[in-house]
Design a protein around this nucleic acid. Structure first.
Length: 558
RNA sequence: UACCCCGUAGUGUAAUUGGUAACACUAGGGAUUUUGAUUCCCUCAUUCCAGGUUCAAGUCCUGGCGGGGUAGCCA
């Protein structure tokens, strides 16, 4: 049917507040209509899902408006930064799919320019060298409710400031003995404007500039200028920098340079996890997890190893939106995003996590039947594969109940159930050991599966099964907000002791022996699994459970 | 007790800039199903509170209340 151009159009997709700002800027032809964003990580840790939100936002905006996107490392504090982090961030960004083309920058590239600008501000009487030490600085700064007082060094002459700053640079003074400050307003209600630090003396080896410098610019004296130098139009950061914006603006104006607009949005919070670098680091260093790429960690490396795809993470970031409201997203949204992606792309397989042996008494010993199973029920074009069936098979322990409730559609004594892609079995006998534990089931197999049966279960032929290690993960914390602890407690008290379960005796269909590390499968009725890229060996894959399938039965039991 | 930001279903994001609350996820129902999966339907808010302006307020004004941020020579 031809579309009628006069017909009411689909409602315009809603615009978030940043898009609205950019729309307005472009309408006013600000920056000649250009859009240029950037992602500015400090290389002092690994990227996590919260960074992904920022990356998708910045990169997405640049693409949407046909603009540019830069990657810039904010490396102004050599004491905390390392090349290792630079490398991992580069790698994670590539994986995520962000493309900065040839625009990879480092704030440390601008140290000379920043130094020059500092001299310029000194000459303009807008910056001075202060001899107060850190404790004195704090005293003079005042408090949230009380104004600060001016430093006794505030009115030094330009020449003296120039001389002192030059000597700071040449290394004449010890660390912390002097500092270069902007001369703004010690009584400002915004503490960031109470003569903030521009350059500090710090003898530390920088991962890029080595020992060239012993003075380093502060964040506030670096960030806006770096944006400016790169022609950034919209400098997007998180809410805690709101109070820094007046200072960002002050430096751009005092220096009379291109003035990007800082825009703040709410950082991502998720239930059942922590997001701060400090806490993630603590989890790693105190060995509550195996490392930065532990599949339970919401670092990009952790998610990647867990089996999350970059597409699912971007879809998630798209779905959560962006605003200035402090909010906490339900972890279920992340799980939903990966299920949605993997449901499409993951080929199906049969895998029994906790095996229970079943003897199909009417199949002769040594005989192997070849069953044909679809690789994807909704995508016949993905074809089928052969799954062997023989006298002894494994089924999931949960799929048999001796005393079954009425709604239990699986196997029970004298009951029938369908074996996926095979046939129907009837449970004739429950075999137990001396202690009453169920050892195995005796069933009869009916290859005619045209009959209607309530339940269908997965299975694996015992003689052909691949025994594999399967790792199951749960939330790292057992409550929605791990930081919600009684007096004297810490977030570590809320660690979920059962967040990792390793199954060493899972039974998988034999085709999985050749599963490629880094590939995804759905074990039918169970979940999505990822072949661990670092621990798998040829012929001996290790599977990480990325996510379970939705399970309405499990919910009914509650 | 200072300044700044923010309050819309359980969660998150919208609402053509003053025109009668939408979308997604969750939850609860139902249909289909050789995965209790997928898919598909249905149900769930008078927008923090109180005044005010207006024919009309989630949107504007005033005053409350609530949440968050800020006192590194961290970013």
């Amino acid at each position: 049917m031809p579309t009628d151009p006069a017909a009411p159009q689909e409602k315009a997709p809603s615009r978030n507040f940043i898009q609205q700002i950019i729309d307005a800027d472009r309408a006013a032809e600000k920056n000649e209509g250009r859009v240029h964003t950037r992602f500015p990580p400090e290389p002092n840790g690994y990227l996590h899902i919260g960074h992904a939100k920022s990356i998708c936002l910045n990169y997405g905006l640049a693409r949407e408006y046909g603009g540019k996107f830069n990657l810039r490392f904010d490396d102004t504090n050599p004491a905390k930064e390392e090349q290792e982090y630079v490398d991992s961030i580069l790698d994670d960004l590539h994986w995520l799919g962000a493309d900065w083309e040839d625009r990879l920058f480092f704030a440390s590239d601008y140290f000379d320019q920043l130094h020059q600008w500092a001299v310029q501000l000194i000459k303009a009487g807008k910056a001075y060298v202060c001899d107060l030490d850190a404790d004195q600085m704090r005293e003079y700064r005042g408090t949230l409710t009380a104004p600060g007082k001016e430093s006794p060094f505030r009115d030094r002459s330009v020449d003296e400031n120039l001389d002192l700053f030059a000597r700071m640079k040449t290394g004449e003074f010890p660390d912390g003995s002097r500092i270069l400050r902007a001369k703004i307003d010690m009584a400002s209600p915004n503490i960031n404007l109470r003569d903030p630090v521009m350059f500090r003396i710090k003898r530390a080896h920088h991962h890029r500039t080595g020992d060239k410098w012993c003075i380093y610019p502060s964040y506030d004296f670096t960030h806006g200028q770096s944006d400016s130098l790169e022609g950034i139009t919209h400098s997007i950061c998180t809410l805690e920098f709101e109070n820094h914006r007046p200072l960002y603006d002050w430096f751009c104006e005092a220096l009379e340079i291109h003035h990007p607009q800082q825009i703040e949005f709410a950082r991502l919070n998720l239930t059942y996890t922590v997001m701060s670098k400090r806490k993630l680091l603590q989890l790693v260093t105190e060995k509550h997890v195996a490392g930065w790429d532990d599949p339970r960690m919401l670092t990009l490396r952790g998610l990647r190893r867990r089996g999350y795809t970059s597409e699912s993470i971007c879809a998630f970031c798209e779905r959560i939106g962006v605003s200035k409201v402090n909010s906490t997203i339900d972890m279920a949204w992340l799980e939903d995003a990966i299920r949605e992606d993997l449901n499409e792309r993951a080929p199906r397989a049969l895998g029994v996590l906790r095996p229970l042996k079943v003897v199909l008494t009417n199949i002769p010993e040594g005989e192997t039947l070849e069953m044909s199973a679809p690789n994807h029920p909704q995508k016949p074009e993905l074809g089928t594969r052969t799954v062997p069936l023989s006298r002894e098979i494994f089924i999931e322990q949960d799929d048999f109940m001796e005393q079954a409730p009425k709604k239990f559609f699986r196997l029970k004594p004298s009951g029938e159930v369908r074996l996926r892609a095979a046939g129907i079995i009837r449970c004739d006998e429950v075999v137990k050991d001396a202690s009453g534990q169920i050892v195995k089931l005796h069933c009869t197999f009916d290859p005619d599966s045209s009959r209607k049966v309530k339940g269908t279960i997965h299975w694996v032929s015992a003689a052909h099964a691949l025994s594999a290690e399967v790792r199951l993960f749960d939330h790292l914390f057992s409550c929605e907000n791990p930081d919600d602890v009684p007096e004297g407690g810490t977030f570590l008290d809320n660690i979920n002791p059962n967040s990792l379960e390793i199954l060493t005796n899972a039974k998988l269909e034999p085709s999985l022996a050749n599963a490629e590390p880094g590939s995804h499968f759905q074990f039918e009725r169970s979940g999505y699994f990822f072949v661990d890229p670092t621990d798998s060996k040829p012929g001996r894959p290790v599977f990480n459970r990325t996510a379970t399938l939705r399970d309405t039965w499990a919910k009914m039991k509650k």
